[in-house]
Design a binder for these strands. Structure first.
Lengths: 140, 140
DNA sequence: AGTCTTACTGAGAATAGTTATCAATAGACT
DNA sequence: AGTCTATTGATAACTATTCTCAGTAAGACT
């Protein structure tokens, strides 16, 4: 129930594996799971250990190089966000997984305010909205 | 990657276990995981198998007796529908983990609006705010 | 109340996704 | 080139969940 966060400031080395994983992410707008990325690397004849893929993605997500969300099926899926400008959120269909990106200036302001009121600094937040999209609702 | 849904119309029996689980859910506004509910039942000296807790919650969710969402940590968490006016969020210190509960009517309305605009239904969301609390900031 | 049908239960095995371990490797700095 | 240490890979361990299957108990029907 608790979140472990490593606050140690460590230098990130640019390794072949890290570059390869980043290339995969930059080749698509879709969310990809660690397992998927591992398979895609295999197809490109690049041997990168599964654990390395997990570790690298996790680190990238912490350093905010990429977005990470939890799919309805329980996997963590990752995506390189093109639009780095402005923090944004996701509207995700529980059924088919289709994802819509939405800006949230309202939320930014609100979270900032709440945090300040409670004496918190260096604020960040995560917000995802889940629902059933039009298509899936029609099918059901 | 696909979701199996059993469409067979089966009669649901009212067992001691099912009643016990429902009571736990009715005793709170919070989302609870299967594991948590299992522990709470143990504390009440009610011996209900873990598998039964999982099965029952899953079934209740399908029959729409309760809400089910996936937490950021990967667990499926459940809540008895109806009392939406209990939903709130957490302000968490990255350093010491202290957690402050905050209401968010602003957020509720905003997420509802965004979802509707995009044709989504059965909306739920997750939001956590992270920062460094007063105490930890002073120490650093 | 007795009996029958079958949904439900519990304990543990099996599975999926992810994280931890640890010796070996390889960036990057002098 | 040599040193330091972040990173890697193979695999074990872990967590959350589902499956299996023999035994149990709702609930319907005498």
């Amino acid at each position: 129930m608790s979140v472990k966060v490593d606050l140690t400031m460590v230098k990130t080395r640019s390794t072949q594996q890290r570059v390869a994983i980043l290339q995969i992410l930059e080749g698509t707008d879709e969310f990809r799971s660690a397992q998927e990325i591992h398979k895609l690397l295999e197809q490109k004849k690049l041997k990168v250990g599964l654990a390395t893929v997990y570790r690298t993605l996790q680190k990238m997500a912490v350093q905010e190089d990429i977005d990470a969300i939890r799919s309805a099926h329980g996997e963590i899926i990752y995506r390189k966000c093109g639009q780095k400008e402005g923090h944004h959120h996701h509207l995700i269909c529980r059924q088919c997984g289709i994802t819509i990106t939405v800006d949230g200036p309202t939320i930014e302001n609100w979270t900032e305010k709440i945090a300040k009121e409670n004496g918190f600094r260096e604020v960040s937040h995560t917000l995802d909205i889940f629902g059933i999209c039009k298509n899936c609702y029609r099918k059901a």
